[in-house]
Design a protein around this nucleic acid. Sequence first.
DNA 1: CCCACTGTTGCGGTTCACGCAACGTGCTGT
DNA 2: ACAGCACGTTGCGTGAACCGCAACAGTGGG
Lengths: 256, 256
Amino acid sequence: MRNDDKEPLVQPVQSVDRAAQILEILARRGEVGVTEIGADLGVHKSTASRLLATLEGRGLVEQARARGTYRLGVGLIRLAGTGAAQLDVVQAARQVCAELAADLGETVNVAVLDEGAAMNVSQARGSAAVAVQNWVGRRTPLHATSSGKVLLAYAPDDVRRDLAGQPLARCTPATITDHRALAAELAAVRARGWGATEGELEVGLNGVAAPVRTAAGEVVAALSVSGPAYRLGADRFPAVAEQLVAAATEAGALLG
Amino acid sequence: MRNDDKEPLVQPVQSVDRAAQILEILARRGEVGVTEIGADLGVHKSTASRLLATLEGRGLVEQARARGTYRLGVGLIRLAGTGAAQLDVVQAARQVCAELAADLGETVNVAVLDEGAAMNVSQARGSAAVAVQNWVGRRTPLHATSSGKVLLAYAPDDVRRDLAGQPLARCTPATITDHRALAAELAAVRARGWGATEGELEVGLNGVAAPVRTAAGEVVAALSVSGPAYRLGADRFPAVAEQLVAAATEAGALLG
DNA sequence: CCCACTGTTGCGGTTCACGCAACGTGCTGT
DNA sequence: ACAGCACGTTGCGTGAACCGCAACAGTGGG
């Protein structure tokens, strides 16, 4: 997940690019000191210090304690809160998402395709929250999650082509790591209109997902339900999928 | 809410500062074109274009349509998602928050003090969601919200002094706009240990809030419940406040 | 069909951001 | 307790990088 391997961006503004990298580093590691950030960027610690001071002035980062280590700031939450609200998919799905979560009692997520991963952009918790976990902002592998499979199944060809060029990471013993098996799975997803996983991302964690389509039929997001295998068993998949497809269709209808 | 009036920051890195301003502008207005952003920053549109291209390369902004207007990107959500999770207050409050929301059936929020405003950093929706609204990221006036009153009541002196120097904005007919009345209200909050609002931010919207304290007794956040007046009437305030205080105390105990 | 407007790119000058080194401070180890 | 160390922050000078200009390309409107 090294960050400096980007496609031919014409000519990024150096200091801004570095500042953005700092945010990524902080997101990945939590609290980090100036020296370590500087070393990671390959710049002098004074440079890192200045960049951090600037970001702090805008509230994007903040000092952890009086001791001078930094972490991400609340200003980011402000930005993302309004930013997420502008993502029309989130806006449209919020209502049906909440209803579905209350009905099923499991956690419901909305995910979109984000550079070769499925990123969760919104979440509604179910009543039975055995482990309260926040998936928002997490990027999950496309081949090991239900929402990932759905997004991948309906994605443009080049996304699948990119993925075919690299090995499929094994998350658990059940993870699909063979490209031909994955292609078959995706075909099955397209055939029945929904996807599922059984312990392929984490042992004991199951999930079901359905595509959210625009009026033009384009798949822009995936709605997913996930829960522990003892509650969300494979025998429940078809019934859950039926509700999920209905909810996803409704969310899609709300899109402009 | 002009952004260039900052305290004596030594010497911000210019381009990074401008990039951060761009994010704020996009958060405020949604989709904006390059020319308008440039004019707003007082820079040439080519400069704005380059800054935006850099931010886009890191996923912090994205092009709205093929047409070249920009909006905030999903990368921000990724950052904020992990960033919010690192806010130990959010982490600690998540569980009790969810339970309380399920129990009361109303929306529960966690807010912190953010430069003269109460910012909601986490939210748990209640089952009875008459109007599903996302408060996360929204900055609300300190004198017109229950959580704001709580944060203000226990804030350092200089925060109150700053506020005393400026007029209190009137949001509704019920908003407290007199500084002496506000001071009395804050004293009442301190006396009983919780705060409330009756239609002072929006007509028909009530709220109750309690302080979250660290082991050292410092107030770092406020837990609030809000709902329409016909469901969350003033007669319910004491009972709700009791649960809220208990939950806030529990959340505080989970803090390191 | 052309015009007005948009956003994106070479190019050169000059500002501005970087690296260096010194400073102050808090922690640690013996 | 003191010294040593590592950390983050701050002047200062220089060179590189960023900005403004202007020309280019694409699009919607008249």
